[in-house]
Computed example of a mutant assay.
Amino acid sequence: MSRVPVPCHIKGAVALQVGDVRTVQGRPGVLVIDVTFPTAGPFELQEITFKNYYTAFLSIRVRQVGSPNQSSTKWITCLRDYCLMPNPHNEEGAQDYVSLYKHQMLCDMDKVLELRLILRQPSPLWLNFTLEELQFFQHGPQSSSSAFTKWLSHPAPYEQPALLLQQALPDPDKVSSEVQQMWMLTEMIRASRTTARIGRFDVDGCYDLNLLSYT
């Protein structure tokens, strides 16, 4: 099934300070990015793609349309401390492209209204970290080509070629019997044919002068 991007509005990252802000050691170790979907409305999220930029861990919270007995203002954690850099102090995974899918989430991702991305980088080696090229996808309408492929792979009973071919073929036992009879007739004809050489002018091993004179 095809996927289509969901229009979204990505708000600016908000830094949560870690350490004493009055000292040089104080630096933002956590960023929060809110994502809204003002034109999409509630939708079922299928995939998130982005390019990492020195973010070590990612958590995601989701706000969904609530049931009649549940408020829609409640945030639910759907991804917790997903590792983007195996070692925050090394560059492995620091600038990788990442895809997160619906089945990796901790809750159902239907009726999504808003997402909150929580980025963490505990290492003091990297001055900046974020997520770039963020995109969100939902299922698109079924294309005509995929429907045609499905029709070919599941033909109707009266369209199944194997059944039509089976009905058109003759009975194999009958064909075998007729072939056997033809073979026997061929052998009989071959056995009845003479192998003696017939001369052109000889009669009982002698030549007739009258026949020779006419030629």
Rank of each mutant, 00 (worst) to 15 (best):
V30S: 05
C83A: 11
S72H: 09
F136I: 01
H89F: 11
N128Q: 13
A40G: 10
K51Q: 12
R116D: 03
T55D: 03
E44H: 09
A156L: 15
L119F: 05
F137G: 01
L79D: 00
Q121A: 04
S144C: 11
V112M: 01
T77Y: 05
F129T: 03
P68A: 00
M85E: 02
T39R: 11
L58E: 00
S145R: 10
D108Q: 13
T39C: 15
E159F: 08
C78M: 14
C83E: 14
F37Q: 09
N90K: 14
L115A: 02
R116G: 06
H103D: 15
Q142H: 14
W75T: 07
S146P: 00
W126G: 07
D108R: 10
L152D: 07
P86V: 07
P124Q: 13
G29H: 01
G93E: 06
C78R: 00
L117N: 00
R116I: 06
W126V: 08
L127D: 15
V98F: 03
K102I: 05
D110R: 14
G140W: 01
F50H: 08
L106M: 15
W126T: 07
Q70W: 05
E132P: 04
A147S: 13
S71P: 04
E47A: 09
K150C: 09
S144I: 10
T49P: 05
Y101I: 14
L100D: 02
P28T: 05
M109N: 00
S143I: 08
S123K: 03
L117S: 01
K102M: 07
S99N: 09
E91N: 12
K51M: 08
H89A: 11
Q135A: 15
C107I: 10
C78N: 01
R27G: 03
V32A: 08
H89K: 13
Q142V: 13
S123H: 02
V35D: 02
G93R: 12
V35A: 02
E132C: 10
G66P: 04
F129D: 01
E114W: 13
R120S: 11
P157Y: 08
L131C: 05
D108F: 14
P68Y: 03
Y158Q: 15
P86I: 13
N69A: 13
Q95G: 11
S67W: 06
H154S: 15
L134M: 15
A147F: 09
I33R: 13
T36R: 08
E133S: 14
Y97N: 11
E91C: 12
F148D: 13
P122T: 08
A56Q: 01
V98R: 02
L58H: 01
N69R: 13
F136G: 00
I48Q: 01
N87W: 08
C78D: 02
L117I: 05
Q121L: 02
P86H: 07
G29E: 04
P42C: 06
L125M: 12
F50I: 02
G140K: 02
T130C: 11
L113P: 03
S123W: 01
I60N: 03
G29Q: 04
H103M: 08
I76R: 11
S143V: 05
T149F: 12
N128H: 14
T49K: 08
E133Y: 10
D96P: 05
P157F: 12
K102V: 04
K74W: 13
R61N: 14
E44M: 07
